[in-house]
Write a protein that binds this DNA or RNA. Structure first.
Lengths: 201, 201
DNA sequence: ACTTTTGTCAACCAAACGGTTAAACAATAC
DNA sequence: GTATTGTTTAACCGTTTGGTTGACAAAAGT
């Protein structure tokens, strides 16, 4: 067992525990148990619970953020952009289904942990899309809409079914398989729904 | 100071603390301090932290659920229903902005705490709306859409801006006042957006 | 009038928590 | 082969946590 192995095993176990239970609900002992190592090792590699949490949180952001900016920045027609986004973002979240709830909860607990880097990076990408949407509105290619509302709508409809999964599963009376099917449908449904709303007939 | 006063003061303080910090982050001492009473009183009126939490959680559900079923059950044209929903639901959440994140986090932590009562109640209301939407689709009054996706879309676009507020505020570079304005706009925007998407020109 | 019940508090308790220590162990260098 | 460095462990520590206790006062019941 090399040291890199151990450090990675800790981060993996910490990711599991922090993302499912949150910073406050997570226990250092549980992380150690899940990684099959002594609790002292957590402090040997990551000085404190806080530092370990920050490593997990930053990784979570770095999984979700780049794909968002990548798709938004790409030079392509708006409708294609929307289709690409819903498809590949829902796909991404499916592989990391705990992350959205985790980020949302921890950010509401302590809004300051967001480092500017990601925010400013996204701010620039978004400005490009803003002008793209505004120009299309001015040219009468799509119905009038504020770019901010448009992006909130797309992101909301893509992410919400994951964070509200327990309620929606219960309310719509679906088992796990049915719910996965519904999520799969949304990859195209959300894009179609949005495009139908803004396109001019 | 009567006993009813004390019990209510405890529940109010507990609501504050639990909703902003979650079950795991909440401290009984902090609740006692906020209620200006001795910590032993919490256990005198509510036997344990868990029981106190459940009282807060049930109240939170009872604030959010009835309005949802009420609007969905009401006999009125679909478009009016959508307009009423987005307007009055965004309005309701504005007054209890911590609740959605609170419910979502606690439900992901422990999906079993949802009692059937609310779920089954909603199941019936939703069936009515289901047939309403399906009939309109069959009659060619609206574009084809699965009622389940429609309701997820409406709810997602209404609630998401509240749970993702810290991220969206940072990303869209808005201060508190601007963000409140944006939320206000969504009361009509979401309904318009949805109706535009499903209506036939 | 006195007894019982209800409400309130300061002090206390055992358990769980994040974190530390000192020594054992393993790997590499000399 | 031995010194040096990095890795791992069991045992430990101080603090915080949810929860309890016993004393006491104010009502309520008789």
């Amino acid at each position: 067992m090399s040291n890199q192995d151990t450090e990675q095993k800790i981060l993996n176990a910490a990711t599991d525990v922090f993302q499912s239970k949150g910073m406050d609900g997570a226990r250092m002992q549980e992380i150690a148990d899940k990684a099959n190592i002594n609790k002292a090792m957590l402090h040997y590699y990551y000085r404190s619970k806080q530092k370990l949490f920050e490593a997990v949180f930053k990784t979570a952001i770095s999984i979700m953020a780049p794909k968002l900016t990548e798709i938004i920045e790409k030079e392509e027609p708006l409708f294609d952009k929307i289709k690409h986004f819903t498809n590949s973002y829902i796909n991404l979240i499916s592989k990391h289904s705990y992350i959205p709830t985790f980020i949302i909860h921890e950010l509401n607990r302590n809004p300051e942990i967001l480092q500017d880097t990601f925010v400013k990076q996204f701010g620039n990408s978004f400005n490009k899309m803003k002008t793209q949407v505004n120009e299309m509105v001015e040219n009468g290619e799509i119905r009038p809409i504020e770019p901010e509302h448009l992006i909130i709508n797309v992101v909301a409809m893509s992410i919400f079914p994951f964070v509200a999964k327990p309620i929606l599963k219960a309310v719509l009376q679906k088992d796990e398989a049915d719910y996965q099917l519904l999520l799969e449908e949304r990859k195209t449904h959300v894009a179609d729904f949005v495009i139908n709303s803004i396109k001019i007939n």
